[in-house]
Nucleic acid binder design. Sequence first.
DNA 1: TTGACATGCAACCATTTAGTTGCCTATAAT
DNA 2: ATTATAGGCAACTAAATGGTTGCATGTCAA
Lengths: 92, 92
Amino acid sequence: MNWDKDAVFKALADSTRRLILDELAECEEMTLYELTVRLLMKHELSISRQGIAKHLSVLEGAGLVLSQRKGKYRVIFFNKEPLKDLLKGWVE
Amino acid sequence: MNWDKDAVFKALADSTRRLILDELAECEEMTLYELTVRLLMKHELSISRQGIAKHLSVLEGAGLVLSQRKGKYRVIFFNKEPLKDLLKGWVE
DNA sequence: TTGACATGCAACCATTTAGTTGCCTATAAT
DNA sequence: ATTATAGGCAACTAAATGGTTGCATGTCAA
């Protein structure tokens, strides 16, 4: 796959989205609901559920998050592939 | 030094700024004037001189560019330090 | 079947930001 | 000294973006 670097960098530019990736990095997979609870409770983020969903769609657009509807829930994964070689040419 | 990751990610989020870093990566140092010429001629970028200067100040704010007035010119350097460990925790 | 729950969609708002123009300063060259 | 050149500063504009609210959809459980 050929990742859109611009989309990846733009997705990483927001601290809430980076926090989401931090959370996803800890688990193999996670429910959107579970993620939302974590952000709101554990991190005391003051943001609406829809706000989180929008961030997630940006991450998905960049290929950094994969997701799949599983019954009532949406299961999400952290796809680290777009991060490989992201800084290539600048640092080894 | 302790780099502000948020500033670094935000600085990298713009394609023109990444192009500036690409140019700086090729030379040890460069004049702001020289950089401007390169962007406008070599890359046929349609942006004003002041536009470039603003991008450069963003990069400088993030610590990715160091600069120093040398007579008539402003000499600029690519400081790669803030890029080290930038993706730490996500990729090795 | 009906209600509760997790998610999706769309319009809207406020702020940020990339870009501009206009003018001012500083150094170099003639 | 004067002029050309390289750069700095500030106000303004349009578009992108982070955030919201309101409502619709889909799935599970009683």
